[in-house]
Amino acid sequence: MLLPILRRLSEMLFVMFGISVVVFLIFFATPGADPSARIAGRNATPEVLAQVRHSFGFDQPMPVQYLKVMEKLFVSRDLTSFVNRGERVIPAVVEATPVTLSLVFGAAVIWVVFAIIMGMIAAATRGGIPDRLLMFLGLVGISMPVFWVGSVANLITQSRFHNTWLFHWVPGLGYTPLTQHPFLWFKGLVIPWVTLAILYIGLYGRVLRANLVEAYQEDFIRTARAKGLSESRIMLRHALRTSLITFVSMFGLDFGALVGGGALLTEVVFNLPGVGRLTYLALQSLDLPFIMATVMYSSFFVVVANAVVDIAYAWLDPRVRDAR
């Protein structure tokens, strides 16, 4: 049992190492551009440039440069932004992480629960009116861009209908830490959660329905009926359980990507100071240290999510367990 976990961990480390090398090469070894100029940002003074060149060791060979950058990122953690002078990158990312986690966790709970309900109802009534209606709604959900949904939600809850009984509870945009005021944390995130979840409910609901309908063609469903089991038991214990593989793998990757900063648009629209918004701001100002840090951070979560998906596979399907 220990060995597979160790192997998995070393695989993760190896992948992370690969990503860090690629990120490093893109930022520092792209020919034709002085990396120090790019790190220093636009309109940097010659003094700043010299300082950057020295502190990153650009006068030294490539592997040394790589090690220096990694040291700055992970060991001394003193890589600083060149747009907001003196702002340290790593603490900023660490500070933004709980915001993103709060947003994504909540949205994930909503989308998993609703997608499963939607997929099951649609599959149980396949071909019927509820099925068609749900699949249509799902398509609508997928088609609506998240920034548009967010803006409309803001328009409704923050201005147009804010003073009605329906939305007067919605606090202003921004984030309240959970530790500070849990109820306010919750209230402030409800609308962003739903906004972020809509797309995924549609996507996951449709995928799950397709997988369930496929599962219903399987021989073992016929066996389950022949055993005299109830339809709900057949759905939950036999069809759903075997249909979750695609669902879980999609979830792992999407979740990882979102925690890693993929919820950027939602964070920007709702003015949540999360990692996505940090990335967004860094991109706007071409703040390379920040971009690098957020890319590494996001790759970490994607890799972790992948590992979790693999473990979930084994839990879901004993055949996978045996194959490894």
């Binding site: 021989d219 389950a224 036999h238 359980r241 075997t242 004993p318 055949r319």
Partner: peptide, 9 residues
């Protein structure tokens, strides 16, 4: 085919 007729999980 008892392979496909039994729920694999």
């Amino acid at each position: 085919d008892p392979m496909t007729a039994m729920t694999p999980v």
